[in-house]
Simulated assay, not measured.
Amino acid sequence: MTARRRPLYWEDFTPGALRAGAELAALRRGIGQEPGNAPDMWRFHRVRISEYEAQTGAPSSTLAAEHTALTLFAVHQQSQRTSMHRAKNGLGSALRTLRQSDQYRNNPEALDTRVNALATAEEVGELAHHLRGLVTQLRGISQPFDYTALFYDVLRWHTPEARDQVRRRWGAQYYDWADTERTDGA
């Protein structure tokens, strides 16, 4: 029997809880910091890293992915009354909702340009930079998305083949390529 992983921070987050504001502020202090270098964030990390990484302080792609998701969640959740983590609502789908909002209704190409910049990022730091701007806009329309999926997407971003798969999934969600009408498999 395998042990169930601990819930990630955003999976257990309760908006309006007594310490929620202080916790989110501590997480936001990690913006621009290297993963693991923001002591205020240490208590919120839930991922497991290898014994080697723990003993040597070697960079961990898992820790980097969680750090990115934690800081973005803290930005997104700020001043929101409901959780900005919604399981099974992909980032591309959330961005499609933003594209259809009043903010972009007359000029969706402006958001397309920002999403394209996100999708063409090569490094996780560049990806996080583009995500931060888009998450701020999603906060403006109170549009949640799946932060657990984002965590795994950022983790996959370290590998070119997996990065391409993430890009295709985001594109399919953003432009709604899914043919939900078909049932014949064609």
Rank of each mutant, 00 (worst) to 15 (best):
S101A: 13
M1I: 08
D12S: 15
P7M: 04
A162D: 13
A64H: 03
Q103C: 06
G30Y: 05
R19T: 09
V124T: 15
G32H: 14
Y104L: 07
E109P: 00
A38E: 11
A74T: 01
Q77F: 02
L8W: 07
Q137G: 02
G125V: 05
A178P: 00
G90N: 05
G140Y: 05
L24S: 06
P35M: 03
A119I: 11
T82I: 11
G171F: 08
T56A: 07
G140W: 03
D153Y: 03
S83G: 11
L8R: 15
E53Y: 13
R114T: 02
H45A: 02
A94E: 07
R182M: 13
V75Q: 03
L72P: 06
Q78P: 01
G90S: 13
Q33D: 10
A65M: 02
G125K: 11
R99Y: 07
G133F: 09
R5N: 09
E66M: 00
A26Q: 14
L111C: 05
F151C: 01
V135K: 03
R182W: 04
Y175W: 14
E51P: 10
I141C: 12
R96W: 12
A119Q: 12
T180C: 04
S142A: 12
D164S: 15
E66P: 00
L91G: 09
A26K: 14
A149H: 12
E123Y: 10
R29E: 09
L138S: 06
V124A: 10
A74G: 04
F145D: 06
A69T: 15
K88M: 04
R6N: 10
A94M: 05
R168D: 09
V115T: 09
D164W: 07
L111D: 07
T113P: 01
A22L: 11
W170M: 14
M1N: 06
W10A: 01
R28E: 06
H76I: 00
M84A: 10
K88P: 00
R46V: 01
R96G: 01
L95G: 04
A17S: 15
D164F: 01
T71E: 01
S93H: 13
T82Q: 14
G92K: 14
R4A: 12
G32A: 09
W170S: 01
Q100P: 02
R156M: 07
H158L: 00
K88Y: 07
P160H: 08
K88F: 11
T2C: 02
